[in-house]
Simulated scan of single mutants.
Amino acid sequence: MKTLQKSLIILLITILASCNKDDPKITEIIYFPPLIGNTWETKPITNLGWNPAAAKPLLDYLALKNSKSFIILVDGRIVMENYFNGHDASKGWYWASAGKTLTTTVTGIAEQEGSININNKVSDYLGTGWTSLPLIKENLITNKHLLTMTSGLDDTADCVMPNCLTYKADAGTRWAYHNVYVKLQDVVAKASKQTWSNYFNSKLRDKIGMEGTWFQVDNNSVYYSTTRSMARFGLLISNKGKWDHNQVLNENYCNSATNTSQNINLSYGYLWWLNGKSSYHLPQSQLQVPGSLIPSAPNDMYMALGKNDQKIYIIPSKKMVVIRMGDPADETNFALSDFDDALWKKINALYQ
């Protein structure tokens, strides 16, 4: 019996020793780059069993389509990192509306710290008169309505001053893409007794080693950073709000943010876009379109989408984060474009 046990132990050791640590079938521990410095582990696409011949057509397409940068992470490691058209790793670029998801995240952090409740009305924090609505209608609007784009405010003007925020429907009964979400930054600032930037920096940016800054463009608050900083944020959210051993954002909120948040636009969470749903609405439209947002992309993908094709794609089933920054691929657009579907056909060629 002892001889048999010894033989089995030797066999097990031999099998484990023969395993290639780069075998794509072996589950990798998620990697997180250090908070300070530019060190970031890489992993060649050949070690994933991907097709290296598909990389050049993808990169040629990105360069042709006015891209500035492109990153793919798998298990947190950089699989592809490329810069185009004079851009490089040290240069920043604007997130546009992809940065809405930063507001989502910090709102969740403020709630977990007890500063706010997303189910409370906005006027609890900003006071009454932050819109032009009758008080009974204004008091229907909660922080969650701002997170889900269901405030009911008229979306024909981007202005977020009280005189521009007029009634269109009762809160919760109409989905419409609107810059009024930015009022959540005021809610967090008021509740925390800090500026939005200071709270954001201490509670999110610095905890995951991001670099960047906020600046105002018309009535919107826009974030500006390097591509790797955007990738760090994508990695945090892909790991359910946990950075290494630090739970920056609680998992329950992260799950709610990246799943359908209301029954009007099934492809929208808390300022995150969701792929693979049965229908969707687009900005500046009340039309319900059947089918998935990006048919060629994985159904479980969720996205931060910004004007002129700023992209964070997160694919849980592949433990993958994809970042694209740059000028508009074709013409100016608000969030989604034909570029997304064409790009994903080329990304798919890497691993299919």
Rank of each mutant, 00 (worst) to 15 (best):
D206L: 09
S267E: 05
L305P: 00
Q288S: 15
Q288M: 15
P295L: 05
G276T: 00
Y268M: 00
N275R: 01
S202K: 13
C254L: 13
S192E: 12
Q288D: 11
N255A: 12
A257F: 04
H281A: 13
L274R: 01
K183D: 10
V217D: 12
G276A: 01
N239E: 08
Q194G: 03
K240Y: 13
L266C: 10
Q216F: 13
N275H: 03
T260E: 06
Y223A: 00
T213L: 12
F215N: 12
G291S: 02
S202A: 14
A231M: 10
S256R: 08
S225V: 05
Y280D: 06
W214F: 01
K307Q: 09
N252F: 07
S221I: 04
L204S: 06
Q194W: 13
P298C: 05
I208D: 06
M301A: 06
S279F: 06
L235P: 10
S278P: 08
I237G: 03
N220C: 08
N250W: 04
G291A: 05
D244F: 13
P295W: 03
N250M: 00
N250F: 00
N201Y: 08
P283Y: 02
D186F: 08
R232F: 04
K240Q: 14
A189M: 04
N255F: 10
N275D: 02
Q216G: 08
Y199L: 15
S292M: 02
N250I: 00
S261A: 07
L287V: 15
G241H: 10
R228T: 02
K307G: 09
Y302A: 05
Q185F: 08
A297C: 05
S192C: 14
Q194F: 13
K203E: 12
K307I: 12
